[in-house]
C-alpha cells in the first residue's frame, strides 16, 4: 500500500489530509461522525485576542461549484479556546494546527504567544488572508512588507513552526511568498478564499450581509493549483495546499503542483465524511497513477 507519511516542520503526518481552518470548528461536531485519529492533522478555527461575534447573517451563499462566506472570524477568543476547546483535542493522537488572526501586530503576537505554548498545538497557521473583517486579516496579506513584518514578529514569540496562510487576492503570489519566507516563515498554507459577491434579485442587494465574501470550493481549484505551482517553482518552503479539494484525485493534483500536504475545507459541509473518505481512497489513487508514496508523487511535480 502506498506510503502516506509526510514529515513537515512541527508536523509528523500519518497522511497528508487535514480539515481546513474554519470548516471544522474545534473538531467536536465532526467527532460525532468519525474517529478524528484518522486525520493527518486538524487545523482549528481562527483564534483572536478577544471573543468575536462575527458578521451579521446571511453569512453564506452558494455559487456555481462553490460558495461565498463571510463569517467574520467568530470565535470565543484565545483564552477560552485554550481553556475550553484544546483539552478536548488532547484526547486524539493528531497534530493540531492553530490558526491565528488579529487586527493588529500586537494581537497576532499575543495570540501566538499564548496558543503556541500549549502542548497540543504543533504548528501555527498565520491567518493574514481573511477577507471578511474590516481590520487586519487580509490587510496583512496583500502587502509584502506588512506581511513580512508580521511574520517576523510572530516568529520571534512562537514556540512552534509558523505556516503563513497566503491570500490569492494579490497580483503577484510569488512576491508575497518570498517576502514571508525571507521573514522566517517555516512553511506556507495556500490558498485562502477569493473575494467575491452575489446579489439577491428580489431584494436587489448583495446576498451576503457583509456584501462581499470569500469564494471557496471546486470553483477555485484551478487558481489554487496555479498559485501553488508558481510558488513551488520559486521556493523550497513546505506548502500545505488547499482550494476546492473533494477527492483523492484532487490531492494528487495538488501534490503534483508542489504541495506537501493538503487541507480540505468546503467539501466538509457537503459530506462530513469527506476527509476519511479521501484518506481511504488515496493509496489506491496514488498507485493507479504509478506512485508508491505521497513523497514520490510530490517530487514528481518538480
Amino acid at each position: 500500500m502506498a506510503d502516506l507519511n509526510v514529515s513537515l516542520p512541527g508536523l509528523n503526518l500519518k497522511n497528508p489530509i487535514m480539515p481546513a481552518s474554519g470548516c471544522f470548528g474545534f473538531g467536536r461536531e465532526f467527532s460525532e461522525f468519525y474517529d478524528l485519529n484518522q486525520l493527518g492533522a486538524i487545523v482549528i478555527k481562527a483564534a483572536t485576542g478577544e471573543a468575536r461575534y462575527g458578521n451579521p447573517t446571511p453569512r453564506v451563499a452558494e455559487t456555481p461549484s462553490g460558495m461565498l462566506n463571510a463569517i467574520g472570524l467568530q470565535n470565543p477568543g484565545v483564552d477560552q479556546i485554550i481553556e475550553k476547546e484544546l483539552p478536548f483535542l488532547e484526547s486524539f493522537d493528531v497534530p493540531i494546527v492553530a490558526n491565528v488572526a488579529g487586527s493588529t501586530v500586537e494581537e497576532y503576537v499575543e495570540v501566538t504567544e499564548k496558543i503556541s505554548r500549549h502542548p497540543v498545538i504543533q504548528a501555527i497557521e498565520l491567518n493574514i488572508s481573511c477577507p471578511n473583517v474590516k481590520e487586519g486579516g487580509i490587510q496583512f496579506g496583500t502587502d509584502p512588507k506588512t506581511a513580512a513584518h508580521l511574520t517576523e514578529k510572530v516568529k520571534e514569540v512562537s514556540e512552534k513552526p509558523v505556516y503563513v496562510k497566503l491570500s490569492p487576492n494579490v497580483t503577484d503570489i510569488v512576491e508575497m511568498a518570498k517576502a514571508v519566507a525571507d521573514a522566517g516563515a517555516d512553511g506556507l498554507s495556500m490558498i485562502n478564499t477569493l473575494t467575491g459577491m452575489r446579489f439577491d434579485l428580489h431584494k436587489k442587494r448583495p446576498i451576503i450581509a457583509n456584501e462581499t465574501g470569500g469564494l471557496s470550493g471546486p470553483a477555485i481549484k484551478p487558481i489554487a493549483l496555479r498559485m501553488i505551482y508558481q510558488v513551488r517553482q520559486a521556493l523550497d518552503l513546505p506548502i500545505i495546499g488547499m482550494g476546492g479539494i473533494t477527492s483523492a484525485e484532487d490531492v494528487v493534483e495538488f501534490l503534483l503542483a508542489g504541495a506537501d500536504a493538503v487541507a480540505i475545507g468546503t467539501a466538509n459541509f457537503l459530506d462530513p465524511y469527506i476527509c476519511p473518505n479521501v484518506i481511504e481512497s488515496l493509496p489506491n489513487t496514488l498507485e493507479k497513477y504509478g506512485f508508491s508514496s505521497v513523497q514520490e508523487c510530490r517530487l514528481k511535480g518538480e
Binding site: F33, G54, T57, Q74
Partner: peptide
C-alpha cells in the same frame, strides 16, 4: 437561516 455545514461547525447560521 442560510446554513453551511448544518452540524454546528462553521458558524454560518448564528443569532
Amino acid at each position: 437561516e442560510r446554513m453551511g455545514c448544518g452540524i454546528g461547525a462553521c458558524f454560518a447560521c448564528v443569532c
